[in-house]
Amino acid sequence: MPSLSQFLLAVLQAVLFLAAAPLLSGFMRVIRAKMHTRHGPGVLQDYRDIIKLMKRQDLRPPASGFVFRLVPVILPATLMVIAMGIPVVGRTAPVTAFSDLITVIYLFALVRFFFSLSGLDSGSSFAGIGASRELTLGVLVEPVMLLSLMVAALLAGSTDLGAIGTAVGTLQMSSLAATVMAGVAFAFAVYVELGKLPYDMAEAEQELQEGPLTEYSGPSLAMIKVSLALKQLLVVAWFIAVFLPFGKATSMAPLALAGSFLLFVLEMVAIFVVVGIVENSVARTRFRLTPRHSWLGVGIASLAFVFYLAGL
C-alpha cells in the first residue's frame, strides 16, 4: 500500500494533470494557427472557454438517462485515477497499485465505455454513430497496445509500468530491436488514441458534429472537453513513462525532481509539436479504410514479438 506522502504526491500529480489539460488543448490550437499562418487565440484561450461554459445552462435531450448525466463526472475521475498510476518524475508511479499495464489499459476501457455510452444515451443519431466509431477504434487499437507493451514487459520481466520504464531507462532490455519496434507500435497506438487527424473518427467535427459530445452543453461539455484533453496528456505521458523514461529522479532531492519534471515537460512539448504538425498536414482517413492502418500497427507489434522470440 502507498504511504501517505506517496498518496499525496499521487493526488497532486492527478490534479496537476487535470489543471494542465486545457493548457495542452490551447497549445494545440496555437500550433494549428501557426500552421495555417493566422493569428490564433492565446495559449490560455481554453481556460477562458471552460470558465465560460461552466457558467452556461446545462441542457440535455429529453430522451437522455442517468448515464448521460453521470459521464461528465466519471470521465475526469477515472482519468485522474489513471494519472496516479503513471510514473512521471520518479522511476515508479506514485501509486504502484494502479500502474500495472493491464490496469491502465482497462481503466482507459472504462473511459471508453462511458464516453461512448453517453453518446447512445443522448438519443441523438450523430452521437450514436460517434459512439460506434469510438468503440471500433478501440477494437482496432487495443490489441496493438497490449502486444507492444507485452513485448516490453517480457523483456523487462514485469508488467508494472515503472519496472518496464526502469529497464528501458537503465538500458537493461536484452533486445534493442524488439524494444524499438515495440515502441514504434505503441507510439502508433497512442497516436490513434489521441483522437487527432487522420484518426479523429469519433469526434470528426465536419461529419459527426463532434460525435458523443454532440448533445452536451454548459458545465457538462466543459468537463468532457477537459477530460478529452486530459486523456491526450495521459496517453503521451504513458508512452514517455514506458519508452522514453530517461533522466528520471532516483532520489527525493529537489534538484533531481525538478530536473526530471522539466525533462518530462520538454518531452511532452516536443511530442505534441510533432503531433500538431502531423495533425495539420494530413486529411482524415476514410473510416472504412482504418483497418488497413491498424493492421500496420499489428504488423509492427508482431515484428517486435518475433524479434523478442528470436532474441535479436
Partner: peptide, 21 residues
C-alpha cells in the same frame, strides 16, 4: 485484449439500445 475491446462495444450496444434513447 481484442476480446475485451469487442466486449465493451457489445455491451455498450446492448445497454444503449435497450435502456437508452
Amino acid at each position: 485484449a481484442l476480446t475485451g475491446a469487442l466486449a465493451v462495444m457489445c455491451f455498450v450496444k446492448a445497454y444503449g439500445v435497450i435502456f437508452s434513447g
